[in-house]
Nucleic acid binder design. Structure first.
Lengths: 215, 215
DNA sequence: GTCGGCCTAGGTAGATCTCCCTAGCCGCGT
DNA sequence: ACGCGGCTAGGGAGATCTACCTAGGCCGAC
């Protein structure tokens, strides 16, 4: 193992640091947001439209998104839907000057971390940003674990997956063998391979991984 | 076993059917809500204050809660906090005549299912109620399972719990024996008892139960 | 004080899992 | 054609788990 020279991707050598993404069509407002964040040491990246942000988007993004609701082109709420479709994990803090309760409730029901109506104080905004960043951090660890487990799982051969399914359901090797119509010996081999590929040191580990995968 | 005659509680022989709980200090409004729900076949229970509802509250309640924000005495938001402390699982639909965005957002962040500002149409309200009821149903099954597992777990003797912990961490019996300073034979006995009491037919089952318990 | 539950433990046997050796067949890409 | 990986399989040794028999000490409840 350890021979990754052939793999296509550089494989995310460096992760991006968490930062505040700002999407607002008002340039002056954008700039003032950036300055505010700078002043407390938060890294920022600003975009003038939802489309511009989407071009930059990747599922590995970390941080939070400060999002204006009303913009030309794609609205903030539409961007939220699109990000949700793309399995984004970035918590969203909405900002709006002309919002109403139904709009705020819809955004929150769709998973927004917060919803601020202008005007708001700098401190108010910074508090919300920090809270959103904490939410993002808290979700990061489980996400990463699931991604790792899923990756390992997908490296299993079809037969190894079959065997793993039955193993984590509590079936004994002989049962698995008869169920799959193969010899007990072969089950043992697939089982051992699955354990190794899933980096499971015990059956308990394997079951935990299966639970993460929702099996 | 099977001798439950000594246990104090009749043990929830019949579960309550899901219903709509209405908490509002305005009697006229309460009545109209009750009638509206009646008209579509929803069972209701109405209360004039948060305190009155709390006296009726039990964690086994099923359905949803239609809650006015502004009331004399304990407010709707305060009731929400109190219910959260009491591990309520009843989805809350807030109603208010004088709400603003921060209030709605705070309620949603605290876990409310919905937030409606008056006036609203009957259909609007019924839609929200049905949605909240669906949310409650969806959470019911996992809740019940966890409660059952936890109950079984707490029937384990301390030693059986010790052994179970190590078993679901993947330790072999001999390891557990030396870790606990007892013989391998004794570990086997505690292990078998734990499996039986947890109604686990396989190690996989036991690990799943442990995952539910957050072990 | 007796009864029952809990924790402890030995022996034996059988089922089960794990790991070592071997090896044939098939499909895919070079 | 050749190699490689995936799937299949047998035999055997040793570790591990499970199930059956037994039994003693401790402690709280009736």
């Amino acid at each position: 193992m350890s021979d990754d020279t052939a793999s296509g991707k550089p494989d995310s050598g460096e992760e991006e640091a968490p930062r505040v993404f700002i999407v607002d069509d008002d340039e002056g407002f954008r700039d003032s947001m950036v300055m505010l964040c700078d002043s407390v040491g938060l890294e920022t990246e600003a975009f003038a439209s939802a489309a511009e942000f989407l071009r930059r988007f990747s599922p590995e993004m970390r941080g939070c998104l400060l999002l204006d609701v009303r913009m030309p082109g794609m609205s903030g709420l539409e961007l939220q839907q699109e990000l949700s479709r793309r399995n984004s994990r970035v918590p969203i803090v909405f900002m709006t000057g002309h919002g109403d309760i139904p709009m705020a409730v819809a955004a929150m029901k769709a998973g927004a971390a917060d919803f601020l109506s202008k005007p708001f104080s700098h401190q108010e905004l910074l508090d919300r940003i920090h809270r959103a960043l904490r939410i993002g951090e808290r979700e990061e660890e489980p996400r990463r674990r699931e991604a790792e487990v899923r990756e390992a799982y997908e490296r299993l051969t079809p037969r190894e997956q079959d065997v793993m399914h039955l193993v984590v359901q509590g079936a004994a090797n002989k049962v698995i063998a008869s169920r799959l119509g193969i010899s007990q010996r072969t089950v043992e081999i697939h089982r051992a391979h699955a354990m190794e590929k899933m980096e499971a040191d015990s059956l308990a580990d394997l079951v935990r991984s299966a639970v993460v995968l929702g099996l």
